[in-house]
């Protein structure tokens, strides 16, 4: 199991968090249809590092961004979610 260091709450058990989706899958309102489709349905799905959106559902309820290795589960970076990504 992973321990996730929430930028708002500090280190907590992974069971408090839920994975949402990869960071590169966010679709903005004005995005062209082709790009929106690619973001919704095409994933790198690497055997390695990727950036992921998680939600601290049983804590501060904020979205956070994890850079996480998908074989070792090592978390190499945690950041608060920047709402600027949505615009």
């Amino acid at each position: 199991m992973m321990r996730i260091d929430c930028p708002h709450c500090g280190p907590r058990a992974q069971s408090e968090f839920g994975y949402e989706r990869t960071l590169d899958s966010i679709v903005t309102l004005d995005m062209p249809a082709d790009e929106a489709m690619a973001r919704l349905y095409a994933r790198a799905n690497p055997r390695g590092l990727d950036d992921e959106l998680w939600r601290h559902g049983l804590g501060c309820r904020q979205w956070i961004v994890l850079r996480r290795h998908r074989v070792t589960h090592e978390i190499v970076g945690v950041a608060a979610f920047d709402p600027a990504i949505l615009s």
Binding site: A38, Y41, A42, R43, A44, N45, P46, R47
Partner: peptide, 18 residues
């Protein structure tokens, strides 16, 4: 489970997550 990495060898991204 390895569909993503094998498709990536051909430069293809799939609607699949492992």
């Amino acid at each position: 489970g390895n569909s993503g990495p094998v498709a990536a060898l051909a430069g293809i991204r799939l609607p699949i997550e492992a």
